[in-house]
């Protein structure tokens, strides 16, 4: 398991080392409590916002930018992208429209990041 982290909570970017003994995680190198919280989150349940594109039919562009409506587990990113590559959205699309519900079994929806009008 990864145990060296660069904290992204503030511009200082502390290099933090974490050690796991049983259920206990100890961190060193952090200069504040936010660093510890960040590393524990990263070690137990790292999450990211997924942003990618899906095909769209008859749009002014052939791709529609989308994002996850909330963060998904980092490990699910690749799975979700592959699943979304099979989707074809239909115009017209409004920014915020749900394009796929419960992507990759994460329970998080994928929504459109822009309007897409018909060509």
């Amino acid at each position: 398991m990864r145990n060296e982290f660069t904290c992204i909570e503030c511009p200082l970017g502390c290099a933090i080392t974490a050690e796991k003994k049983g259920d206990e995680i100890t961190v060193t190198g952090n200069r504040c409590a936010r660093g510890k919280k960040y590393v524990i989150q990263e070690m137990t349940d790292p999450r990211r916002t997924l942003t990618t594109t899906v095909f769209v039919e008859n749009g002014i562009h052939s791709l529609l930018p989308v994002r996850s409506d909330g963060k998904i587990p980092r490990d699910a990113m690749g799975r979700c992208v592959r699943e979304l590559s099979k989707i074809k959205a239909k115009t017209p699309v409004k920014c915020g429209d749900v394009i796929a519900a419960n992507t990759g079994g994460t329970g998080v929806a994928i929504i459109a990041s822009r309007d897409m009008v018909k060509k």
Binding site: T51, P65, R67, C95, S113, R114, D115
Partner: peptide, 8 residues
């Protein structure tokens, strides 16, 4: 926000 959302 994403870039397209910000622009929108």
């Amino acid at each position: 926000m994403t870039g397209p959302e910000y622009a929108q």
